[in-house]
C-alpha cells in the first residue's frame, strides 16, 4: 500500500505555490504531489492555510477579488492556471464539498441533478434519473430518501444534507473530490457514515480532505500533509506522520502541544 502510494503517478502536482490576500501572504512556497485513487488529508491549526490551498485546486479562490495565486498546479499534467483553462470546466472535473452543508433550496432530486443538467450529462429524463439514483446510492443516501425525492433538500437532517451535497458533487462525475472539513458540523454517527463513504469513494477518484480532527485524518487517509502558519511542514504517508514525524512542529501538533 505504502509503496503503491509512492510510485503511482500523481493526479495533482503543486510546485512553489504562494497565495496572497491583498498584501498578506497566506501560503508560502507549497509543493505537494497528490496521488490518484487515494485519500490525502490536510491537517494543521486554524488559519494555517490548508483550506486556502484546497480552494486553489478548483480555483475557487478566483471568486475572491483580492486573492492572488502564483506557482504551478497541474491536474494530469495540465496547468490549471493556464489562461486557456476555463475555471468553470475545471470545477466540473474537481468537485468540492463544503464545511457547512449547503443544499440548494430545491428538491432532493433537483439538487443532485443540478450538475448533470448544466453540463448536459444526460440525454433524457430516464438517464438523468439513473445518474441521480447512482449518485445517491454511492453517497449512501438512496434508501433514506428514495420515497421523497421531490421534497426540499433543506428539510433533511445535517448529516443527510452533507451526504446530499456529496451526491451532488459526485453526480457531475469529477476526477477529484475536495472536502473542506466535511464533518465539522455533524454528530459522531453522521461523521462515521461520511468517513465510510470517503473510503468508498477513494476507490474511484482522488479525494483531498481538510480536517481539524487528527483521528479522522489517521482513520481515512493514506497520505497526510501538515500545514503550519502558511507553510507545508511535512507531507508523507499517514502512518509515518502520526508515528514517526520528522519535524518537531508536526510532533508538537499531533501530541497536542501546539494548535
Amino acid at each position: 500500500m505504502e509503496t503503491a502510494a509512492e510510485t503511482a503517478a500523481p493526479k495533482i502536482t503543486a510546485k512553489n505555490v504562494d497565495v496572497f490576500y491583498a498584501d498578506t501572504q497566506a501560503l508560502h512556497n507549497v509543493s505537494v504531489d497528490i496521488p490518484d485513487r487515494q485519500v490525502t488529508a490536510f491537517i494543521g491549526p486554524s488559519g494555517c492555510g490548508k483550506s486556502t490551498f484546497l480552494r486553489c485546486i478548483n480555483r475557487m479562490n478566483d471568486t475572491i477579488p483580492i486573492c492572488r495565486v502564483s506557482g504551478d498546479i497541474t491536474l494530469d499534467g495540465q496547468d490549471i492556471y493556464d489562461p486557456n483553462v476555463d475555471p468553470v470546466q475545471l470545477r466540473a472535473q474537481v468537485g468540492m464539498v463544503f464545511q457547512k452543508p449547503n443544499p440548494f433550496p430545491k428538491s432532493i432530486f433537483d439538487n443532485v441533478a443540478y450538475g448533470p443538467r448544466i453540463h448536459g450529462l444526460s440525454k433524457d429524463r430516464a438517464e438523468l434519473e439513473g445518474i441521480v439514483e447512482k449518485a445517491l446510492r454511492r453517497a449512501a443516501l438512496w434508501d433514506e430518501v428514495k420515497d421523497r425525492l421531490d421534497t426540499p433538500g433543506t428539510g433533511l437532517s445535517g448529516g443527510q444534507q452533507q451526504r446530499l451535497c456529496i451526491a451532488r458533487a459526485i453526480a457531475t462525475r469529477p476526477e477529484v473530490l475536495l472536502m473542506d472539513e466535511p464533518c465539522s458540523a455533524l454528530d459522531p454517527i453522521a461523521t462515521a457514515q461520511i468517513e465510510e463513504l470517503i473510503q468508498d469513494l477513494s476507490s474511484r477518484f482522488s479525494v483531498v480532505i481538510v480536517t481539524h480532527s487528527m483521528q479522522q485524518a489517521a482513520r481515512v487517509s493514506q497520505r497526510t500533509a501538515f500545514f503550519h502558519l502558511g507553510n507545508l511542514v511535512e507531507f508523507g504517508n499517514t502512518d509515518d506522520i502520526f508515528t514517526r514525524p520528522s519535524d518537531s512542529r508536526t510532533e508538537a501538533y499531533i501530541t497536542g502541544r501546539i494548535g
Binding site: G95, N102, I118
Partner: peptide, 11 residues
C-alpha cells in the same frame, strides 16, 4: 455558501 456551492459544481 449557496453561491459557492453552485460555482463549485462548475456553474
Amino acid at each position: 455558501s449557496l453561491r459557492d456551492g453552485a460555482l463549485a459544481l462548475g456553474s
